[in-house]
Design a protein around this nucleic acid. Sequence first.
DNA 1: CATATAAAGGATAAAAATGTCTTTTAATCT
DNA 2: AGATTAAAAGACATTTTTATCCTTTATATG
Lengths: 143, 143
Amino acid sequence: MLSNSSKYALKGVLYLAVYASESNKIMAKDIAEPINAPASYMAKLLQELGRHDIVSSVKGPNGGFYLDEKNMETQLIKIVEVIDGEQRLRSCMLSIRECDADNPCPLHDLVGDAKSFFVKNLEETTISQLVSDIEDGKSTLPL
Amino acid sequence: MLSNSSKYALKGVLYLAVYASESNKIMAKDIAEPINAPASYMAKLLQELGRHDIVSSVKGPNGGFYLDEKNMETQLIKIVEVIDGEQRLRSCMLSIRECDADNPCPLHDLVGDAKSFFVKNLEETTISQLVSDIEDGKSTLPL
DNA sequence: CATATAAAGGATAAAAATGTCTTTTAATCT
DNA sequence: AGATTAAAAGACATTTTTATCCTTTATATG
């Protein structure tokens, strides 16, 4: 459903959301390790996320990545779209261009609801909401 | 969600279900064309599906692919599993091994219902049911 | 039986995704 | 200012997925 890359990206951003702050920035390699992602690949993903204002970063000594208040309100779908592209999640299950409610492909009605629900949740949920869940003990951060 | 390969496979099997029969077998290249799949790649996929008793085939003149009565009752999930492997659809959204209802990852509750619903439908639906939909005008075959 | 036909199988190629490494740039600190 | 640190950027390597091609095997038909 999600590419490996966007999984790394989501985990990385979540890790930052929980453990980093402007006064406690975290380096790419220290984010990659707990997530089991290759360090330099993680760095590249964070770079891309930075270009799209999804994470914040500072170079040099005491530098690293963190999320500012605005970053914390990023919708999950944004992260997936930046890494996997806009189409991947939204395209027809059989990759048929003309597929829509009026002209449904054979899988459209079968899995369409599940997919819309899935996408809708990613659209509506922000990083900060997931952090609340973690802090409330409703879910656990990947380690 | 599904790989390109399993999309080709699903479309190919559906095409056979609608247009082929034991007395009217269809060659790989004639299946590939309407589906916009590369002919020899389609042939490979059909071969693999044949090994798993999902499609039937006969070599030689007047040969080709078709679905017998048993093939028609194949659950969609079988096709996806043969082509994409067992794990792809079922693994955790963040690829976390220990993720389950008791120890949910941050996305588990958010998208878990959508995913279970999605997988459940693929498990419960057979090729013949999709064909009924098509014949009833509820959906249209990819052309 | 000989020939033609079409799937099966295997080897190879191209493209995309994932992963690594090196150099450059910007920031901090002495 | 100079040295050091860490992200940014870009080049390169590997792996996986997708695609192509060629040979072999099975089947039908004259």
